[in-house]
Design a protein around this nucleic acid. Structure first.
Lengths: 341, 341
DNA sequence: GTCGTCGACTGGACCGGTTTAGGAGGGCGC
DNA sequence: GCGCCCTCCTAAACCGGTCCAGTCGACGAC
């Protein structure tokens, strides 16, 4: 209740018997002060319990130690996917090292994100942002460039319109997944993809088609979903209820939660995994090791991915960063995939 | 690259032919301006593409539209639990309405959280914070009070040392869970609890004991974990490998991810769910509906919980809030619980 | 015609830092 | 003794807003 007395740089200066400027120099570890004075200033600050007011600091130094991340998620999906939890955690790990904070916002659509990023930047609330979930013709690249806002785009350069970007090579990974399933003898492969609007969904879809063509697989079926478990279950149910000679013997999922859902649907329909159908997940959070059978997955260091994105953003802010991919997801075979019978 | 020309309130004022003060009045919707002037100001701002610099605004008005949330999570658990994803999402939903942002930080231990909150508040980066995961003798209450920092504590008042708090009545919910299992004829009930240090874990542990005593159940076993799926699996394996007459016939979990893990362990050990053992989860994210069998759960509107916490924080900041519980979790029976045989 | 009041607006102090031009004092070379 | 350079430090402008005391003109009352 009782507002504690506001102690400012002036109080510290007075106590140490120096000017405000000297205190500022001391706290920013800049040269031009004798060690004795420096010590006296720190002592005074400690005695008064003073910490620089970051708001004032950002105003005059025109920099903020905050980066933004807006995640777009349809209204009905209340929580975040495991992917984002790990991603955020990786981003944080790098921010923390630089005593930087993450401004997080869940938005409902792209327009809202554009507005939020615009407001963050113009209001000087963030020093830069991480942009995720690129779609074809994404307006965010142009917007960031117009604003002169430092951002790093998470997505393949073909989607991110010239922004500095960090991405996983989904096409290669997806091709490996298909080759793996084909090598196990699967001829009818299906994929339960993510949101149709997302650029990486399209990239994966094309890559699956391409891989199938090369391998001479005819009946590849691909469907899109909203990434939710429910949608994944629905898609799986539909795929597995095809007439016998038409039913896929292997299904590739675009995230792990849908693969978990697929597993249950198979069980409920009396389709054995992996005897009757092989399932292959994507993203490989701890969930994949908790199911029965365990889920084979295209595994991915999501935490490290987030960290790399954050490092790149600092690079962009410093004016020296370049686009690059991170490690391609690797196949981790577990219990949900087996040779076709 | 080219820094866009910084347009400030002064430019807008000049263009509209008024003083800075007038522009400020207009943009804060305060009285004292004619409609004509107001329109002229907005037009000028639009033409120049001006948005108030929030940093400058917070400096002079000494308020920030940011609230803080630090989540403590051991280093080895890289991602967040589903609970927090939904919780954050609920918090966001309220913040968004008030064009407020969430400053998120994942910390490794309590000391780090204390430091972060301290820095946030002293640096005037947040207008208040949400504190979660209270433990016995939690130092954060005293710290917040000393700083005069507006916070809302998520946790039972017995843990939160006089802070305004919002909580779920875990004791009542846990008692209902135990009564339900007992009513199904279970006599040997176990609980796979959360982190031993957390206050709500202790509350639930005591409530289970109390309920068991009233119901005359003797062999209740309770273990603690770190909330991870792996630890949940380990605990379940240990419980289920007890000699036959000693093995629990029902297990209550403190979150859903551990219940999912428990389900797999049971399958792997050849213990049928729910025929041989009933499993009851907590928190009820979409995961509980995706497993096979589906998981009965103590269900909880986590999104709404987060929203209520955020609303309460705004109350605290406005100086008019009081502690209150939110709706008690209710039992949602699904496929993982059945009468004891 | 004068006074009082009210609405509309201005000027400038202020928030709490950073930054820069410049001054005081000491040491050194010659 | 003088000029010069260095080190250490100060004063004041500045960042971009908010806020308050006060000015100015119009209008109503008496």
């Amino acid at each position: 209740m009782s507002t504690p007395p506001r102690v400012t740089i002036k109080d510290v200066a007075a106590r140490a018997g120096v000017s405000k400027g000297a205190v500022s120099l001391a706290f920013n570890r800049k040269p031009g002060l004798s060690d004795a004075t420096r010590d006296r200033i720190f002592a005074a600050a400690r005695e008064l319990g003073w910490t620089p007011n970051l708001t004032a600091r950002s105003l005059s130094s025109r920099r903020v130690d905050v980066v933004g991340l807006a995640i777009c998620r349809p209204a009905r999906l209340l929580g975040l996917e495991p992917f984002y939890m790990e991603f955020v955690s990786g981003v944080e790990s790098v921010l923390t090292e630089r005593s930087c904070s993450l401004l997080l916002r869940l938005v409902r659509n792209l327009d809202e994100e554009l507005a939020v990023q615009d407001a963050w930047w113009r209001g000087r609330q963030v020093s830069g942002s991480i942009l995720v979930d690129f779609r074809a013709d994404d307006p965010r690249a142009a917007s960031a460039q117009r604003l002169g806002m430092p951002v790093v785009a998470v997505g393949h350069p073909s989607l991110t319109g010239g922004l500095t970007s960090v991405w996983t090579d989904d096409a290669t990974a997806v091709a490996e997944a298909v080759r793996y399933l084909a090598a196990l003898g699967h001829r009818r492969i299906a994929r339960v993809g993510g949101a149709a609007l997302l650029g990486h969904t399209a990239i994966r879809t094309a890559a699956v088609d391409e891989a199938a063509r090369r391998l001479g697989l005819a009946g590849v079926r691909q469907v899109t979903t909203d990434f939710s478990g429910e949608d994944g279950a629905r898609a799986t149910r539909s795929l597995l209820s095809a007439p016998d000679g038409d039913r896929p013997t292997a299904i590739l999922y675009d995230n792990d939660i849908m693969a978990v859902a697929g597993l249950s649907v198979a069980a409920e329909m009396g389709v054995r995994v992996p005897a009757d159908v092989s399932l292959l997940a994507w993203d490989d959070s701890q969930l994949c090791r908790l199911t029965r059978p365990t889920l084979s997955a295209m595994s991915h260091d999501v935490h490290g991915f987030g960290a790399e994105v954050a490092r790149t953003l600092f690079g962009v802010i410093a004016g020296e960063a370049s686009s690059h991919p991170v490690a391609t997801p690797v196949l981790v075979p577990r219990g949900s995939t087996a040779p076709a019978t």
